[in-house]
Every structure is written in structure tokens, then in C-alpha cells.
């Protein structure tokens, strides 16, 4: 599904990713943990093609296609989804028109017909229900005045509606109360169909109790320094990152 080889990337003058390798097969869930400032969000931004994040070397392919060669919107249309650590507020654009435009852009890219307003509304209602957001959120400005937890749930709602091939969830669990955490986890699990792949960035083992990963990676100082199974997350929870060697610390 996704293959990252020796990825080096910088923001402005600072190199943040320093030789990152990651291989994800269809249907797999990979958790990425690591200290603050390690480069986890940077990875998401680089993969999504954010302006200002420059790839110095290495390659990334999504389903065999060169991801780095595509525009931001083409990457999304190719099936890449990024749930933001800090979702953006767009006060003058309603969630409804935003999602409708987005869903139909994806459909068009897949060669499908645009949804009618009624069809869209039905789908949106279902997605809202799944993440337990009240319907009137659709009428509000995108993320405008949403609480931290509501923003995170809104990201998951978008993921459900856009049906990506690979979803990167950047700390979708931070700032959530216990119930919201379950809602988010359920939302994610409902999208696990054996084909769709996930990168779950988190600081806490707790989320991984609900979303069971196939692999856990530790990202530190721009590289993956250790990989393992779910037990690796438990180790981090217990002893933190003190065991990281000099030079691997962010």
C-alpha cells in the first residue's frame, strides 16, 4: 500500500526527517509513537504534500504510484487521508458544503457520479451519528468554535465519508475524554475492512487497547529507531523513551 524509502525532508532550513523507512501492506494498522518533536506530524505533512515541507531525498509510493510527484489534492484523490493533530478552522465555509465538495471531488477522481444533495445528506447523517456529533454541526463553519474533542471527531467523520485507502491519524486521541476516545476508536475500527491501511500516531498505549495495531514503531529524531508488535507500546507506556540511545533523542 505505502512504501517509504530513506526519506529525508526539511522544513525551512532544518532537516527533520533523516532517513525514514516504512512499509505498509493493505489492511495493516501501524502505530507510530515517539517523543515530542520527533517528526511524527512532519511525516504526515510531507506525505500529504504541504507547502514548505521539502523532500531532500528518498521515495514514497502509494499503491505503486509516486506520491511525491503529485499535488496535495491529487494525493488525497489517490486515497491518502490525514487527520490533523490540530484541525483547521474555516469560519466562512460550512461543514456541509466543505464535505460535499470534498466527497464529490473524490468520487470524480474515482470516475463516479457526484452525489445528489439528498444522497449526500443521508451519508453525512450516518457519519455524524457514527462519531456522535449532532447534525447541526454540518451547518456550522468548518471546525468553527468546535471543542478540541469535537474537532477530532469531525476529522474521523471526514475519514468515514471520504473512504481513503490509507489514513494517517495524527494524535486523534489527544484531548479526548474516555467516552470520546471510544467513539473515535469505534469510528476507526468500523473502517477496518482488510484493505484499508492506517498509520496511527499516538503518545498513549490507551488508544491501542481499542485500535489494535499490527506493528508499533518508535520515531525519534527523524528516523524509525525501533519496531515491534503491540507489546512495544506497553513498554513505552511503562518506561518512556529513556532507553533511546544518544543521538536518537529528538
Amino acid at each position: 500500500m505505502l512504501s517509504i524509502k530513506d526519506l529525508h525532508a526539511r522544513v525551512e532550513e532544518t532537516t527533520i526527517l533523516k532517513g525514514l523507512d516504512l512499509d505498509i501492506k493493505p489492511g495493516e494498522v501501524h502505530a507510530i509513537m515517539g517523543p515530542n518533536g520527533a517528526g511524527k506530524s512532519t511525516l504526515g505533512y510531507v506525505l500529504s504534500g504541504r507547502e514548505g515541507y521539502e523532500v531532500e531525498s528518498g521515495s514514497v509510493s502509494l499503491e505503486g504510484k509516486d506520491l511525491l510527484d503529485m499535488e496535495v489534492e491529487e494525493r488525497a484523490q489517490a486515497g491518502l487521508f490525514l487527520a490533523f493533530q490540530y484541525p483547521v478552522e474555516i469560519p466562512g465555509v460550512s461543514n456541509m458544503e466543505f464535505m460535499k465538495e470534498s466527497v464529490n471531488a473524490m468520487r470524480e477522481a474515482r470516475g463516479e457520479d457526484a452525489l445528489s444533495s439528498a444522497e449526500f445528506l443521508k451519508k453525512a447523517k450516518e457519519a455524524c451519528k457514527q462519531v456522535e456529533l449532532p447534525l447541526d454541526f454540518l451547518k456550522r463553519g468548518v471546525n468553527e468554535g468546535f471543542s478540541g474533542g469535537e474537532k477530532k471527531r469531525n476529522e474521523i467523520m471526514q475519514m468515514i465519508m471520504l473512504e481513503p485507502k490509507l489514513a494517517i491519524l495524527d494524535e486523534s486521541d489527544s484531548g479526548l475524554d474516555v467516552d470520546a476516545l471510544q467513539v473515535v476508536a469505534k469510528g476507526v475500527n468500523s473502517q477496518r475492512d482488510g484493505k484499508r491501511s492506517f498509520i496511527v500516531v499516538t503518545h498513549y498505549q490507551r488508544l491501542l487497547d481499542y485500535i489494535e495495531p499490527d506493528y508499533v514503531h518508535i520515531l525519534s529524531n527523524g528516523k524509525i529507531v525501533k519496531s515491534g508488535g503491540p507489546e512495544l507500546a506497553k513498554e513505552v507506556e511503562k518506561s518512556g523513551y529513556a532507553w533511546l540511545k544518544e543521538g536518537e533523542v529528538a
Binding site: 500529504s48 504534500g49 504541504r50 507547502e51 499535488e71 496535495v72 489534492e73 494525493r75 488525497a76 484523490q77 487521508f81 490525514l82 490533523f84 484541525p87 483547521v88 474555516i90 469560519p91 466562512g92 465555509v93 460550512s94 458544503e97 466543505f98 465538495e101 470534498s102 471531488a105 473524490m106 477522481a109 463553519g141 468548518v142 471526514q158 471520504l162
Partner: peptide, 24 residues
Amino acid sequence: YYMLTRGIDKQQALVMLNFGFVQE
């Protein structure tokens, strides 16, 4: 950028953002 990551093409995203400015 946020709109582009949702697959909306740039021209359309600009229309929405610019109009959003008064739509608010």
C-alpha cells in the same frame, strides 16, 4: 492546505475560501 488535503482542487478551494469571507 486543509481543503486541498480533502481532495478539493485549488481553484474551487479558492472560490470557497474567498466567498467564505463574506459568507461568514
